[in-house]
């Protein structure tokens, strides 16, 4: 055990010194990050509502942190007075026409955004007051700023045209790529051994043979309307036949009830005749003169057809 305690003080000293060093380094880094060692400029503003406002929320210009809120309290006029610090490097951007406004991100605390003042205005001194969006003057400044920044119709059209021409002239853009593809296509089509050339030659041969009345199509096309005349006369004859058929079908439809009655009467007469013949066949006196045949056996599959038409 003795050897373990040989360097007892050294080991323990290193162990504890390292901890102190780590703490010091971390504190220095935090101090640098929080700008403890820099001069800060304090400004004051007022808001109508203090919802979400608290010390520590960040102050930004266009999303970049330039300081933080130091204190928030309700003043005698029932306005929320906010004191905030701005880092030295951004202090000169807080000018006479700067306006403070509150933004609410989707997640996290509110952010106090400063709309920086115009370049022609003088920077505000440490401890000055700046207008907020809730004050009348602040709202007016914001409106004026919005008017200045809002582009008119012509400027917007020019901007669109500029973007369009830029996109069209872009070497990587769609138009450039399409033109290159079209050029490739033309080169392919105009090639001596290309399929288009071959097709055109074939078509040329075909039209010349048609013009010289070679083959069926040529003869058909250049027969001085012989085929057309034949077809017209055939069509006339077909029309006449169709008229006759129509007349015949009308006659049949008119006489059909009488035909049906005659058939029915013939059937009844036939039934009666058959009954009479059977009676005679069974008569003792005339039976010997009958040439009666045995009933034909009808196969089962034909049974329906064989007897199906008799009533």
């Amino acid at each position: 055990m003795a050897y373990r305690f040989k360097h007892l003080e050294k080991v323990v000293g290193v162990f504890l010194t390292l901890v102190i060093l780590i703490i010091v380094v971390v504190v220095i880094f935090i101090g640098r990050e929080r700008r403890w060692f820099e001069q800060q400029y304090e400004f004051t503003t007022e808001f109508w509502s203090g919802e979400g406002l608290k010390p520590g929320i960040v102050v930004t210009i266009k999303g970049i942190q330039i300081g933080e809120v130091k204190s928030v309290f309700l003043n005698e006029d029932n306005w929320i007075e906010v004191r905030f610090a701005v880092y030295e490097e951004y202090a000169e951007r807080i000018r006479k026409d700067s306006v403070a406004k509150l933004n609410s991100p989707l997640i996290g605390s509110k952010v106090m955004e400063i709309i920086p003042g115009g370049v022609h205005q003088l920077p505000l001194e440490n401890g000055s007051y700046i207008w907020s969006q809730d004050t009348e003057i602040g709202a007016d400044i914001l409106k004026e700023r919005a008017k200045e920044e809002r582009p008119d119709q012509l400027t917007r059209i020019l901007g669109n045209v500029e973007r369009l021409t830029y996109n069209l002239s872009d070497a990587e853009g769609n138009l450039e790529r399409t033109l290159v593809k079209v050029q490739d296509l033309f080169e392919l089509l105009s090639a001596e051994d290309g399929s288009l050339n071959r097709t055109l030659k074939t078509l040329d041969r075909l039209t010349s043979s048609i013009q010289e009345q070679e083959g069926s199509i040529g003869k058909l096309l250049y027969d001085n309307y012989e085929l057309y005349n034949n077809i017209t006369s055939i069509m006339k004859r077909i029309n006449a036949i169709m008229a006759d058929i129509q007349t015949l079908s009308g006659t049949i439809s008119e006489t059909s009830p009488e035909i049906k009655a005659a058939i029915e009467r013939a059937n009844v007469t036939m039934d009666e005749a058959i009954g009479l013949i059977r009676t005679l066949q069974e008569n003792f006196f005339v039976r010997g003169f009958s040439s009666r045949k045995e009933d034909v056996v009808v196969p089962l599959e034909n049974a329906e057809r064989e007897g199906g038409y008799s009533p």
């Binding site: 373990r4 305690f5 007892l8 323990v12 162990f15």
Partner: peptide
């Protein structure tokens, strides 16, 4: 104390 730091800490 040193021994305690050695045992508990180191």
């Amino acid at each position: 104390l040193f021994k305690q730091v050695l045992f508990t800490g180191v």
